[in-house]
Design a protein around this nucleic acid. Structure first.
Lengths: 135, 135
DNA sequence: CGGTATCCTCGAGGATACTG
DNA sequence: CAGTATCCTCGAGGATACCG
């Protein structure tokens, strides 16, 4: 076994250790669950760019329902990624922005999004070639 | 605007450009969708450690149903992340392993998983403190 | 061993209407 | 403007049984 596979194994065993030996009921899975929704990563991406108001987010993501925008933002706020600030204007305006925790988490998430941005054609290609084989 | 925010804005505008101007129907979202399932990232994590057979994965992830294991593996294979090899033993054995594309994608994904591993307590804390406020 | 096939549940997510 | 409240749909995911 070379040094590379040793270091990889080490990392993963530490991850498995954090799951209490078995992978069911793992805290990492709990965290990932809330980032795995249809809208979470997209909203985080936009908020990483700049703070945005509710209506601005709505316009930027035209196909999100008002209900899911509210709910996803609330979940992100609950997990500590997003801060919600109400300004007593008339009518009231509400601004959403990333917290420090959110910014910290978005760093690796951005890496994944950038991979997706750079490699989605390869994925598409694999997908169609697989579909042709199975037909 | 300092140089940092300039570089950030640049990256994000390139992402938005890859979505054809609007964020609906975005290829990045399409890629992310398949990584966002309940089991995908966990299986990728295990396969990044070493190739594994169907039954081994089942034992490692005790709470996955046979149906979802089959289906998630097929989806990952379809997107080009996972290779499936059948060995003509009796009874037949099937080994799953990461492709080059899968390994490439798992690099940033590992970053996110490691963040989750290192910060799940902070998330938990945020969650309970939020729940106490709302009650 | 490594799957399909079937049936079922439940919750994510959508549509629409209403409100402080 | 920024939400709730309601109702509804649909598909992810589970349980069980069968199969090459």
């Amino acid at each position: 076994m070379d040094t590379q596979s040793v270091s990889m194994r080490t990392k993963l065993e530490s991850y498995r250790a954090s799951c209490g030996g078995n992978l069911a009921n793992c805290p990492v899975r709990e965290v990932m669950a809330n980032l795995s929704g249809k809208w979470a990563s997209l909203l985080l991406l936009l908020l990483a760019e700049q703070p945005l108001r509710f209506g601005e987010l709505r316009r930027l993501v035209p196909d999100i329902s008002q209900r899911m925008l509210t709910q996803t933002l609330r979940d992100l706020q609950r997990d500590g990624y997003v801060r919600r600030e109400v300004f007593p204007t008339t009518p009231p305006s509400v601004e959403y922005s990333l917290t420090d925790l959110g910014r910290s988490m978005f760093e690796p998430l951005r890496g994944l999004l950038q991979w997706a941005e750079g490699n989605h054609t390869a994925v598409r290609t694999a997908r169609t070639s697989y579909d042709e084989l199975v037909r």
